[in-house]
Lab assay of single mutants.
Amino acid sequence: VDNKFNKEQQNAFYEILHLPNLNEEQRNAFIQSLKDDPSQSANLLAEAKKLNDAQA
């Protein structure tokens, strides 16, 4: 993981990586967004979790 991520951002990265119901395309999009703007990690994680739950 890129060293410019802080602890919260790293946690978001790993959580998104391991959400079971996202397809690869969705997962990659969230990860790319996280890399583009790490400050949005909490929002991105919340969105990813919502999508993950919706696809459960």
Rank of each mutant, 00 (worst) to 15 (best):
P20E: 10
N6D: 11
N3M: 01
I16R: 00
S41L: 11
N21K: 13
A48K: 00
N21Q: 04
P20D: 09
H18L: 10
L34I: 07
E24I: 09
E8G: 04
K35H: 06
L51T: 10
N23T: 11
I31E: 02
L17A: 03
N43H: 10
P20Q: 08
K35C: 06
N28F: 15
K7S: 04
Q55W: 04
L34D: 00
A12F: 05
N28R: 15
N6Q: 03
K7Y: 06
F5N: 07
K50Q: 12
D53L: 15
D37I: 07
A12L: 04
K35Q: 07
N11P: 02
Q10A: 08
L45A: 05
N3H: 05
E24D: 10
E25F: 12
I31C: 04
A46Y: 14
A56I: 12
Q55M: 10
E47I: 15
A12I: 10
L17W: 15
A46E: 08
A54K: 12
S33I: 10
E25L: 14
Q9T: 07
S33D: 06
A29P: 02
N11H: 14
E8T: 02
K50E: 13
N3P: 09
I16S: 00
L51A: 11
S39W: 09
E8D: 14
K49L: 11
S39T: 08
Q9L: 10
L45V: 08
H18E: 08
N23H: 11
Q40R: 13
H18T: 10
H18W: 12
R27G: 01
F5H: 11
L51D: 02
Q32Y: 15
A46Q: 11
N6K: 01
A54Y: 14
F30I: 02
V1I: 09
A29Y: 15
A42P: 07
E15R: 15
I16D: 00
Q10S: 05
N21W: 15
F13T: 06
D2M: 04
N11D: 09
A54H: 12
L17N: 07
K7G: 10
A54M: 12
Q40N: 06
S33W: 13
A46C: 10
L44H: 07
A42W: 15
D2N: 04
E15T: 15
L17M: 11
N11Q: 15
Q32C: 15
E47S: 11
N52F: 02
A46P: 01
Q9M: 02
A48M: 01
K4T: 10
P38I: 04
L45S: 05
K50R: 11
D2R: 02
K50I: 08
E25A: 13
L22R: 00
N43V: 13
E24V: 11
S33L: 04
I16H: 00
Q10Y: 06
Q40M: 13
A42C: 14
K49V: 09
Q40A: 08
L17C: 12
A54V: 10
S41Y: 15
I31M: 13
L22T: 00
N23I: 12
E15C: 15
N23W: 14
H18K: 09
D36K: 09
A12P: 01
Q26N: 03
E15H: 15
N43A: 07
N6E: 15
L51K: 07
A42K: 06
N11V: 15
K4F: 10
Q40F: 07
E15K: 15
A29R: 03
N28W: 15
A54P: 06
N43R: 09
R27V: 08
F5Q: 05
Q40P: 02
A54G: 11
F30G: 00
A12E: 02
P38L: 04
N6G: 12
L34M: 06
K7D: 14
E8A: 03
S41G: 03
N3G: 07
Y14N: 10
D37E: 08
K35F: 12
S39L: 10
F30P: 00
K4V: 11
S39H: 12
K50D: 06
D53Q: 11
E24W: 14
D2F: 02
A56G: 13
A46D: 10
A46G: 06
A29S: 07
N52C: 04
Q26S: 06
Y14R: 11
K49Q: 09
P38C: 03
Y14G: 02
A56T: 13
L44D: 01
D53R: 14
N3K: 04
N52G: 03
S33R: 15
A42R: 10
H18N: 05
L17T: 08
L17F: 13
A48Y: 03
L19A: 03
D36W: 14
I31R: 04
P38T: 03
H18C: 07
D2Y: 01
P20M: 12
K35V: 09
K50V: 13
Q55D: 05
E8M: 02
V1R: 03
V1Y: 02
S39A: 04
S41N: 03
A29I: 09
F30V: 01
N52S: 06
E8C: 02
E47W: 15
A56S: 11
Q40V: 07
A56E: 13
P38M: 05
F5A: 07
I16N: 00
P38D: 03
Q10I: 08
Q9A: 07
F5E: 11
N6R: 01
S39E: 13
P20N: 09
K4C: 15
D53M: 14
N52D: 09
L34K: 00
N43E: 11
I16L: 13
F30W: 03
Q55Y: 14
E24A: 07
K49S: 09
A54I: 13
L51F: 10
E47V: 15
N23K: 13
L45F: 06
L51M: 09
L34R: 00
A54E: 13
D2C: 09
L44N: 01
Y14T: 09
H18G: 09
K4P: 08
A29F: 15
N3E: 08
L19D: 01
K4S: 08
K49G: 04
N28T: 05
A46R: 04
F5M: 09
D37N: 09
N23E: 06
K49C: 10
Q55S: 13
